[in-house]
Structures are given as structure tokens and as C-alpha cells.
Design a binder for these strands. Structure first.
Lengths: 303, 303
DNA sequence: TATTCCGATAGTGAC
DNA sequence: GTCACTATCGGAATGAG
């Protein structure tokens, strides 16, 4: 899977959507921050050699919350509850996207787009709304707000285009239906005169999980394949391949939509495994599904 | 555990109970027997470098039983059913003890005494009755025969003495109550004038399993400790440390003895784990019990 | 429905 | 209640000095 990891690295460099990050990976200030008194609330990674992400960032040593504090709003208290536990890890990307130049792909007024730290497909991005009024809401609640939904949908569409372009870059050379375009690129044909290639946008899905584990609102932008060594158990797979995955297009959900029901969604996660591509069933035999997905991947990318 | 393995090797050499084995480990005939036509019913190990035991012996490739055979007695048919499957592996020790000089400790008119191939304690022997009229019976049935029981008991007692002597040899130097004897041995005191040491016979248990998996009647002669890397799961442990283990002294069982009941014995195998020495309970936490048994072993051998 | 580690549980096949 | 192998399932901790 090293190939995949390297290719995802490339994704940060291929597009014109430069992140707003402007701080270099390492600065003298970080070394100064090693003294406990200098750390205070702005946490820094204690081991510079550790690859930085929101998890290491969030879990970095910090003093216990002081007994005497300035009065807080209810909103910031809620945020405080989340901070410092894994459920709240995404807040770091939202509040400090510039700290993660390797993960953050795009920052707009409304969202931060990052690479999922544990991608479940060849391409797996997360779109994180920045609005504090929304970002701790359950997706079903947040996307009941029509205006907010419209905003996020537009950003998600842009993210999906980016994901499709990266998928084309990574897999285009394996694709039969993309061959003419691929060869034209090889001949130096300018972009505006290239023949249409495979429609990779069709292979990108956009949606939420019915029961997110990470507290902050996030929309998955994920390629169809489910080929990743990070897919390690049934729930990983079923969370993207049953109605537990709620397409962003389906929002707002009707009040009586069955997908709101906890029991129904828990059952979805425990369903028998079914190949997303050929429909073959695998019961509980996850390892067998994994081997099968490898074969399907080869055929899928060759379409 | 290499120490244990080596010490068990020693057991074949320490006592005067020479096995009846007289054939060397390897003969030219075995190589001749490699051709399929020469194998017939007397199976040979196909890979000479593999350490030989009844399992490799029994499982070695052999031709299917020929369609046309001489008429057989019912007894030999029963034996035929067992032959060639794991449940019948012990027959090789019974019929061909001379093939296993490293496993067989003693052969008498009535029994073969072997080292268990997967010992569940520091000392773990199996006493195999040679009587074809008994050796495929369930232990509860076989030991309802008073005369047979008397014979096997006498042999088992001898086997237990052998086991105790080997335990003393392996562990005597760690034992407080054995120190005087140990030091006397060191000073060259003749055996008949040695002070009494620790009573290792008390640490040897003799009995059967209520539901044996190996088809041929076998009596376990096992040291008390249960310290062995071959103890790998709960059933291994509980089969020796619940009423699933039936002391030979308890035979014949009464008709209404609860230990005859299948449901009761299956429950015994699934019981929560309890340390045989201190009575501490471990629920289902087998790994924790294993670590605890290591500590108990050190204290037990120091008694 | 975060991951990771450890370990308990279950099914299979065995020349 | 044979073993050995593979895998599934289940709980607990989760950073760092």
C-alpha cells in the first residue's frame, strides 16, 4: 500500500487549490515551546520527528484545565468537553488548518478539506464545515438547515471534482475508457482539446455516516473502490456500503426516514458483507471479502 | 521452554525401566519403503528429517485401503475405522512401541507408557493399555472391569513413581523441603542412606478425561503444576482441573455418578478459570491465568 | 459508528 | 474432550514525562 500513500501525498501538489497554510513545517519557535511554561494552551508537538496530524496535535501534553478560568459561553464549554479526547480530534484541522500542510487540501470561508488520516478507499477526503454554530451538530440536524446545506453542497461538489481529478491522475493509465485521453496527454495535446476520458466523478461518493464517531461534522468524499488496508473490519466496510452511508444529496432527511433509527443503523453495520461491485455475499467472512475486493479493484480501474 | 523439553528427553535415560524398543531410529528398510507399492499397510514417515511420533507415523501418506481385502473380524474393522484419522493416532504406540524410542518409556505385557507429545505440565505421561478387548472402550466402561482395573492401577502406580522420580530430578534443587536430601546426594551419600526429601509423589495425579478425544484408552500421569506452553486455552486447563479429570482411584464410577453426564462435563470445560493452587478466579481471562501460573510454579517448586 | 492492542472465541482441515 | 491455522469478535486504553 506504499504506492497509495505516496500517491495521496501527491494530491496536495497536483491541483491549483493551494491550501491557506503558510507556516513552514518546522520553525525555531517550536523548539522554544518545549518548555512547559511556554506551552500553555497553544499545544505543540513534543517530538518534531513525529509526523504531525490532528491526533498527535490534540494529544500533545497540555496542562490540566486550571481551576480558575475566565467565564465561558456555553458554546465554548461544549467545545472544551470535546477537546483532548479522540472524538474531538477534528477541531484541530478546523481551527488550525495551517498546522497541517500535508493533510489540508483546501480552506475556504466555510470549510476545510482534508485527507482522511485512515482512508478507506483509494481517495478518501473529509469536508469539515467551519461554522461553530453547526460543527457539533449531528449531520441530520445540521443539514436540516437549508441555507447551510446549500453552502456545504457547493463546497462538497468542488471537493468531489478535486477527488475525481486525483483519481484520474492515479488510475487513468489503467483504464480502457480513458485510453484515448491518456494517450492524448502523452502526445502533449493541450487540456482544452483533450478527448473526454473516463467519468471519474461517477466513482466518487459524497455523504455522511448516520452515527459519526468523530464529534465534528464531516462529509466523506470517497472513491467507490473500498480498497485500502485501513478497511479492517465489517463496520468499516458497512459504514460506507449500506444505508448507514447517507448521500449528501438525500438531505434534508424526512422526519420519518428510517435511516434516522438507531436500531436500523446498528443492524446495517452488522449486516452480512456484500461486494459493492458484483453483489456477491460473504456472510461474516471479512478476510475473504478483502481478497475479493483486490480482484474487483483491478477490474474496476480497468473499466 | 527449551529447558523443559530437554529435561523430558532425559527422562528416557534416568530410570532402569528400559523400553522394549530394539530397532534403531533409522534403517535402510525405511528408505526402500518410500515407493508406494512397498508401503502397503505398514506406514513409514515420508520425510526422514521430521521427528518421528505416532502422529507423523499415522498421518504419513498411504494408499487407500484396497477394495478387495481378506475377511476381517469386527474388532479389526473397528480398528480400521480409527486408523488414519487423528483420533486413532495412539494405536501406533500400542502396536509399534519400538518405533518410538524417544517417546516410549516402558512396555509391559499390559501397557505402553509414553511421554505425552503435547505435555500440559512439567511431567505428562500417558499409560496405554495394550488389550484390544479394552483399548477402544470409553474409560468409564473399561474400568468397570474390576480385573482390568486392578492390572492398570498397578501399572499406573509404577508410572507415577517414575514420574515422581523424574520430577524430583528436575525440580529437587529448587525445593526447600528437599534441600537436605539434595545436599546429601551432593556429598555422595548412597541412595539407601539418603534422608527423605520432598514427597513428589503427592504432586503427581493419575486419571482419565471424561470425554477423551483420542480413541484409544489412555490414563494421564501428570504433575500438578500445569505449567506448559502447550496449555493454550481454557479447555486444556479445565480438562485437568475440574471433575472432567477423573482420578483412576475413583473407578469404577457409580451408575449415577454425575461425572458420566455429558452436559455436566461440557459445562466443566467452559467453567471460569480457577488457579489450582491458590483458588484465585480468572473468569475467562486465560492469558492472565497463564501469567499467574508462572508465578505459582516458582513458589510450588520451592516448597 | 475514531485506532490500536490484546485476547477470547469459532471454524476448518489434517496424510 | 487432538493440534495448528486463520479469522472473527470483544473489551480497554488512548499523550507523555
Amino acid at each position: 500500500m506504499a504506492e497509495t500513500a505516496e500517491d495521496l501525498e501527491d494530491l496536495t501538489r497536483t491541483e491549483s487549490v493551494a491550501s491557506s497554510a503558510d507556516s513552514p513545517e518546522s520553525t525555531p519557535k517550536q523548539d522554544e515551546a518545549q518548555t512547559p511554561t511556554a506551552r500553555a494552551n497553544t499545544t505543540k508537538p513534543s517530538k518534531p520527528e513525529t509526523k504531525r496530524n490532528a491526533f498527535t496535535e490534540l494529544m500533545a501534553p497540555k496542562p490540566r484545565a486550571p481551576i480558575s478560568q475566565a467565564p465561558q459561553s456555553l458554546a465554548s464549554k461544549a467545545s472544551q468537553v470535546i477537546r483532548g479526547v479522540w472524538r474531538g480530534a477534528l477541531i484541530e484541522y478546523i481551527e488550525h488548518p495551517e498546522r497541517f500542510p500535508n493533510q489540508v487540501l483546501r480552506v475556504t470561508a466555510h470549510t476545510v478539506l482534508i485527507k482522511d488520516a485512515f482512508p478507506k478507499s483509494t481517495i478518501h477526503l473529509l469536508l469539515l464545515p467551519r461554522s461553530p454554530a453547526h460543527y457539533l451538530l449531528h449531520p441530520h440536524t445540521a443539514f436540516a438547515d437549508a441555507s447551510f446545506l446549500t453552502t456545504i453542497r457547493a463546497e462538497a461538489a468542488e471537493a468531489a471534482r478535486l477527488a475525481a481529478a486525483e483519481l484520474a491522475r492515479q488510475l487513468g493509465s489503467f483504464s480502457a475508457s480513458n485510453r484515448a485521453r491518456d494517450e492524448a496527454v502523452g502526445r502533449g495535446v493541450p487540456p482544452d482539446r483533450l478527448p473526454p476520458g473516463r467519468d471519474y466523478a461517477r466513482e466518487i461518493r459524497v455523504g455522511t455516516h448516520a452515527h459519526p464517531s468523530m464529534a465534528h461534522l464531516h462529509v466523506h468524499i470517497i472513491s467507490r473502490d473500498m480498497r485500502s488496508e485501513r478497511v479492517k473490519h465489517r463496520k468499516h466496510y458497512n459504514s460506507f456500503n449500506t444505508p448507514f452511508f447517507v448521500p449528501l444529496a438525500d438531505y434534508p432527511l424526512a422526519e420519518d426516514d428510517v435511516r434516522r433509527e438507531t436500531g436500523y443503523q446498528n443492524a446495517n453495520l452488522r449486516r452480512e458483507l456484500v461486494c459493492w461491485r458484483c453483489g456477491r455475499t460473504f456472510g461474516n467472512r471479512f478476510a475473504e471479502l478483502k481478497r475479493h475486493l483486490e480482484e474487483e479493484f483491478v477490474e474496476w480501474r480497468a473499466e
